[in-house]
Nucleic acid binder design. Structure first.
Lengths: 341, 341
DNA sequence: ATTTAGTGGGACAAAAAATGGCCAGGGGAG
DNA sequence: CTCCCCTGGCCATTTTTTGTCCCACTAAAT
């Protein structure tokens, strides 16, 4: 396998784009079948006619069938698809890239999904799926899972395969609400994750923007205390990574006020902690929950974030050193590699 | 490897042609370097501009270098080339085709070279090389090698890697001269083969077109007798396969006279024996040497012939059943497969 | 010293292929 | 029924590929 990949990359690099495109198309069809040509083109960001050409090709090869509802994969294609995925992964050099980043960053593992979240929303779903699959496979009996908010975590939760899993699993939010939309709050995600895993969950009902003294008092409240203690000893921590500028914009904050007096510019964020490009913490938004230092001590910390534009944020967070496993996409991974060089 | 080949053949058949073309180009360069763009185009039967495009590509990839004398392979490319050959072989489905033909014909082995001798003379050279390599690797100490005439055998002999090999090897012509040009007479080929292998040889100096009684007398002559006896017990018999119509034309014979009274049409020929499509012998041109039945008993009979147009001839000969191993090209092999279906 | 046969690279028009965009006909869901 | 989205046909346009020159140059042969 590896030999042929090297030969192909060396002698016919054209095939990489081509096969990736076809794989993309097939994946999108697989996830939405039956699906029409136009919807497909829009989702993939390709011209309608281009997609059509590919569909004609795939039809000739009996890899898809078309009826009035749209196109669908044939069973033969469906059977081949997983292998195709692995092959594309290798052909894109993602396997090599994973290894390189693992070595360069000192992480325990890096997992990369093809494509770029910023360019194709479907890649975002794939990232969610990959992370979800990892969660499913990692969790053991009696585990406590701590999760944060954010769109990536929400996507992860959405793609968790439902069904009863391990016994006595508990999901808790790693931090209180931070003023996000309810769909991407840690609470909501903890609940959905627990639901899909057939696990139980606890919530942290703490409104955002409270004065510090109020937070201190809340921290002592028994229910809150219990959840905080739980997340302090979680068996796994799952979190997304935010871009400071986006967070400021989304929550309608003022960059100047928030980062007044900070020497370094913030580049990345994880549950309310802002990191500079060198990995140092430049600012922390106060909220209930264990402090960063506590969470950093956990045995298994998994970060999920993708998109070329998030590369700097991801790298800043990685530099702080508490992340063990990273799930990302090709766009971010390649950018990170370039930044590291 | 096999997995990726199946995926490529299924999802991106375009690259098969592309990679084969590039492999062809590189092979031609390798065999003739330094070589110019125009000569290359002519030899490959491609447009000058097309070749140029490929050369530009290969130059960008640092697989070839260009100077005033022409283009040459870079060491890196030279190192990769054997692997590329194997990969192309698989990608073209030749491995599968070899297996299929082996099974269908009951031969001990079939070996196929990419391309079509009829379309590209360089393929003919490759066929010669492949056969020559086999001879080199097969021959053991004290062996007697019997060879026939024909262009394919001549090509084989030309590409035998020179240098001392096994001890006490002897090369003999399987039949007397049959009126061919001297370059492709069995005698000449036996001599060259022996020369390249560092072996000794015997010749059969028998002019063609002698009356039968004369032949009988010659057969009893001691020198002739000796060579005939040797070839009768040869350890390996190498032969080409001829097309009856071509032989008639080349030797300026009359089809009507030659095949008068034969029930079936001749389709293939081996050292003077003409075979019908069903494998039966329809005619034998008298000459000195062991009869066909004797040669058919040999342990190792290897036939070499290529080109789409020779498929019928090859198949006719195979049907007779004395061939053990066949060396051919993609063009003939695919045609034979189609004929068998 | 000069001719000659080969080289790579530039340039450009013609041919072919890819693409963008629109429309007609049709089946299924609301 | 009506509406929406589907496929497949169609065509003008753009982009790429291809065929065919020419040119300056080099190395070998004369």
């Amino acid at each position: 396998m590896s030999d042929s990949v090297r030969l192909l990359r060396e002698f016919t690099p054209e095939i990489i784009d081509l096969l990736e495109r076809r794989h993309n198309i097939l994946r999108t069809i697989k996830n939405n079948q039956p699906l029409g040509r136009r919807a497909l083109a829009e989702q993939l960001g390709l011209g309608e006619r281009v997609v059509r050409g590919e569909l004609d090709f795939l039809k000739n090869r009996q890899l898809i069938t078309a009826n009035s509802a749209g196109v669908s994969l044939t069973p033969a294609c469906e059977a081949l698809f997983p292998k195709l995925g692995l092959f594309v992964h290798e052909l894109l050099g993602l396997h090599a890239l994973e290894k390189e980043l693992t070595a360069q960053t000192g992480l325990k593992g890096v997992h990369i999904v093809p494509g770029d979240t910023d360019a194709d929303p479907a890649v975002f779903q794939e990232l969610g799926k990959l992370t979800a699959r990892f969660v499913r496979e990692s969790v053991q009996d009696d585990w406590v899972i701590a999760v944060t908010g954010g769109t990536t975590m929400a996507e992860m939760a959405r793609h968790l395969p439902a069904g009863a899993g391990k016994k006595n699993v508990l999901v808790v939010p790693a931090r209180g609400g931070l003023g996000e939309d309810v769909e991407i709050q840690a609470n909501t995600i903890a609940a959905e994750t627990a639901h899909r895993l057939g696990a139980s969950y606890r919530l942290l009902h703490v409104p955002d923007g409270l004065p510090e003294e109020m937070l201190d008092r809340l921290m002592k409240e028994s229910k809150v205390q219990e959840v905080v203690t739980l997340s302090r000893h979680a068996d796994i921590l799952l979190h997304g990574i935010g871009i400071p500028a986006e967070i400021v914009r989304r929550r309608d904050l003022s960059w100047e006020k928030l980062f007044a007096g900070t020497a370094k510019q913030p580049a990345g964020e994880v549950f309310g902690n802002f990191f500079a490009a060198d990995g140092s913490v430049v600012k922390t938004i106060p909220t209930v929950g264990p402090p960063l230092e506590e969470l950093a001590k956990l045995d298994l910390v998994a970060a999920a974030a993708g998109g070329t534009g998030k590369a700097e944020a991801i790298l800043a967070v990685l530099k702080h050193g508490f992340v063990d496993i990273l799930f990302t996409d090709q766009g971010a991974a390649e950018r990170i590699r370039d930044l590291l060089r």
